[in-house]
């Protein structure tokens, strides 16, 4: 979507530059890192598969969620090894956090945010949002010119992921560290205590997993080849306008 140009309509659709290189690089870095972070995170969770609200929480306290250990098909490593899960998680986490920071700065100053993600006048009107929901439900994806702009649900998801979910999972992750809690005691208080922060970290991880599944579904429904190519080379073939 970045750098979308107004292409005159022609018989054969010409590929347009849809994603600039920082978006593409960040996207694939994230795909890899989120995979490592999610699976190693479940490995860490398996050490104590109970979640609590508040400042403290251990075996004799009341959990709001108790789970069985996640199976080896989804944990890294593929057997219970808390130390190795932590090594994976703590190696990937700083790279992931700084990548997001740079991408946020680039989005702001590279006008990705203002040009592609910010809501336009009237887009948030209930009637417009409802229309977009109906189009999605009927799998009527935009074609022609409209396919070059994110629709309101897409914008909301991308803004929600980049500016809410990802920062939230990083900040709650930081509060898992007793050292960070000495450095920034206000942060863990902001989340209502370390066990609340751990719960929010877990919930956000699964919200991101849900985003991933919907994202995959949308890519498959919208034409996987064109979509995946646009995220690798940046080139996107504009779907012909419906008559």
């Amino acid at each position: 979507m970045d750098g979308a140009r107004s292409e005159p309509k022609s018989a054969e659709p010409k590929p347009v530059l849809r994603h600039r290189w920082p978006t593409r690089l960040w996207h694939w870095t994230n795909a890899l890192l989120l995979y490592v972070l999610f699976t190693s995170g479940l490995g860490i969770f398996n050490a104590h598969p109970r979640l609590y609200w508040g400042q403290y929480g251990a075996n004799f306290d009341h959990p709001w969620l108790t789970l069985e250990r996640f199976g080896s098909w989804i944990t890294l490593p593929a057997h219970y090894n808390l130390a190795m899960s932590r090594h994976w998680h703590l190696t990937a986490a700083p790279v992931f956090a700084f990548a997001l920071l740079f991408y946020m700065l680039w989005s702001l100053f590279g006008r990705h945010l203002g040009r592609d993600l910010a809501f336009r006048r009237g887009e948030l009107a209930p009637r417009h949002v409802w229309q977009d929901v109906r189009d999605h439900a009927r799998l009527r994806f935009p074609t022609g010119e409209a396919a070059l702009r994110y629709n309101v649900l897409q914008k909301a998801s991308y803004i929600g992921v980049i500016f809410v979910a990802l920062p939230l999972i990083i900040l709650t992750g930081l509060t898992m560290s007793p050292g960070m809690n000495a450095a920034w005691p206000w942060l863990v208080e902001l989340f209502g205590g370390r066990q609340s922060a751990r719960s929010i970290h877990f919930i956000t991880a699964f919200a991101l997993a849900a985003f991933f599944l919907v994202h995959m579904l949308m890519v498959i429904l919208a034409g996987p080849l064109n979509e995946v190519r646009s995220m690798i080379t940046g080139r996107y073939k504009v779907p012909e306008a419906r008559s």
């Binding site: 400042q55 004799f60 090594h87 703590l90 560290s177 050292g179 809690n181 000495a182 450095a183």
Partner: peptide, 30 residues
């Protein structure tokens, strides 16, 4: 990665930065 985290945390905090101390009513029952 441990070395990076130690370096980063020690850079961010004062040498004697204290951890939060709680009120008596916040003590775990057990």
């Amino acid at each position: 990665a441990e070395n990076f985290h130690r370096w980063a945390q020690r850079s961010l905090m004062a040498r004697d930065a204290l951890v939060h101390e709680f009120r008596p009513d916040q003590i775990s029952p057990f």
